[in-house]
Design a protein around this nucleic acid. Structure first.
Lengths: 138, 138
DNA sequence: CTAGTTGCAAAGAGTTTGCATGGCG
DNA sequence: CGCCATGCAAACTCTTTGCAACTAG
């Protein structure tokens, strides 16, 4: 995989790098890069290759389609992640909180957390505020 | 929803109640209940209704298909869950660990964890042992 | 009775794949 | 030049939906 750097792979990597901490569907990406001359299948094949290389992460957001997020930094590999279900933004979990959690789970339940696959779902601060305002205003 | 208790809905509920803490795909369930005379569409429609009522939880296990787990007890609504990616078994997270985690995330990152949707992925004790044995023997 | 529910088969959405062509190195 | 990657369209998988027949209450 990734033997050649084609213009399509280049465009995809650039696009992902420009959208860190977002979760994007294959459709989103294909749509955004349509102008750059990338077919849907090339998007899927490259996403699959990048996932296998561990450079992107595949997550679910409830529906049937898969979302992808760039995780090509050292940061990403070591942290647990928080995903806001409202806006799709990813946050890196405080390292100490993550260590506490992982340690507790191994100690108390002998459960070994997978740092790559685990994503905690919820609502980020901005969306909490936005929802509160929507509620008050109608 | 669930205005009538048909024999199909009855069979589905019984089957789910007999398989707590497992994550089952619609296909698994339809297969298991095929003898009971339930069509695939009835399985999907009933699962959707039960999910809406909050009696079952829909989770992802990485692939494209959805998995469902019974969560009809008070226990399930209050706890965070751990899902073993190897065997699909669900575990209830220690309550104190869960509270610590949720409190830390709100305090340190203003992130509000969704208890229903959040599932931590990893490997349970039994599967850790099994994998270790496979490694040593094969 | 009568409205919710079912089964079937067809439609949909998202993703994967086969094959000939094109382009990186 | 050789092999990998691409584009297209067909195939696939999982899920949803339309509709006539059925059934619980």
């Amino acid at each position: 995989m990734a033997a050649y750097i084609t213009k399509q792979r280049r465009a995809l990597l650039d696009y992902l790098a420009m959208h860190p901490d977002e979760s994007l569907s294959a459709g989103d990406i294909a749509g955004a890069l349509a102008g750059a001359g990338i077919s849907v299948s090339a998007v899927y094949r490259n996403l699959a290759a990048l996932e296998e290389e561990g450079r992107i992460r595949r997550v679910s957001r409830g529906g049937r389609e898969a979302y992808y997020q760039f995780s090509d930094s050292q940061d990403c590999r070591d942290h647990l992640h928080l995903l806001c279900k409202s806006c799709g933004t990813t946050y890196h979990m405080d390292e100490e909180d993550a260590e506490t959690l992982i340690r507790n789970l191994i100690r108390h339940e002998q459960f070994l957390v997978d740092r790559v696959d685990t994503v905690l779902y919820g609502t980020c601060e901005a969306c909490q505020i936005r929802k509160r305002m929507e509620k008050n205003h109608g």
